[in-house]
């Protein structure tokens, strides 16, 4: 039997180019289900950033633009301002959002731009082969933190940081691919909040078996451990 894809996914581009065991497939499929269920596909515009998420440029049967280098947020902000009826969704990794795209991300929150941004956090730069991310933990070994050197005392906590600058009306949450129903609810809430005219952000904890060098069981265990630092839940309702 064929797997049941959400209607807004483009079957022609499946299977996608993500590594086996990558968390992106789960996130994108869940987002697709939300778009279907909310019946917003005809007015949805999707934007991807630099990093592994750029592979999703043809994932959906939705108008999609591939941006670069942490610029997905201002692209979404710019589009949405010109088309208030649209549902504008951007996705980026932890490097794109919290390093090179941080100021755009924070200022969109500050201006309360009505866009939905999804940040995928696997505590590492994955597409470039495993470098230190702003979300990496103290002592974490990556290509640019050999032996755990050069790491930060504490990782960037995106939604918590955004709360400092965001409007009180913004929706800020952290979900995980280990709890798909909860993550789905957060994605839905984030689109609803955009439609209500406010900024919405969901960080999703995800795994990267390729760079973590973990098998399926180890990936889950590692992610469970990470969630002790990156607490799942709604940060600003």
């Amino acid at each position: 039997m064929e797997p049941r894809y959400p209607k807004c996914l483009d079957p022609k581009t499946k299977p996608s180019n993500f590594c086996p065991g990558c968390g992106y497939g789960i996130i994108l499929k869940t987002l697709g289900q939300v778009i279907d269920e909310m019946e917003v596909a005809p007015r949805t515009v999707f934007a991807v950033d630099i990093g592994c998420n750029l592979l999703a440029w043809n994932y959906y049967k939705l108008d999609t633009i591939q941006t670069h280098h942490g610029r997905v947020t201002p692209l979404c902000v710019g589009y949405k301002r010109a088309n208030r009826e649209s549902v504008t969704i951007g996705i980026a990794g932890d490097g794109g959002l919290y390093a090179i795209g941080l100021q755009s991300f924070l200022h969109a929150a500050h201006r309360d731009d009505p866009v939905t941004i999804i940040g995928v956090n696997n505590t590492i730069y994955a597409m470039t082969g495993g470098q230190l991310a702003p979300t990496s933990l103290l002592g974490q070994v990556t290509d640019t933190s050999p032996q755990g050197k050069f790491t930060y005392e504490k990782p960037v906590l995106g939604p918590e940081l955004a709360k400092e600058m965001a409007s009180s009306s913004a929706y800020l949450a952290r979900g995980s691919i280990l709890n798909i129903p909860q993550m789905k609810g957060m994605l839905k809430a984030a689109i609803e909040r955009q439609l209500a005219g406010h900024f919405a952000f969901v960080e999703i904890m995800s795994y990267c078996p390729t760079n973590w060098k973990t098998d399926a069981q180890q990936s889950i265990e590692t992610l469970e451990k990470l969630e002790e630092t990156f607490k799942v839940g709604v940060i600003n309702a």
């Binding site: 979404c76 902000v77 710019g78 589009y79 755009s104």
Partner: peptide, 11 residues
């Protein structure tokens, strides 16, 4: 960001 917003507007 200004330039990316311009691109958004053009789309």
């Amino acid at each position: 960001s200004a330039g990316m917003a311009v691109i958004g507007g053009l789309l």
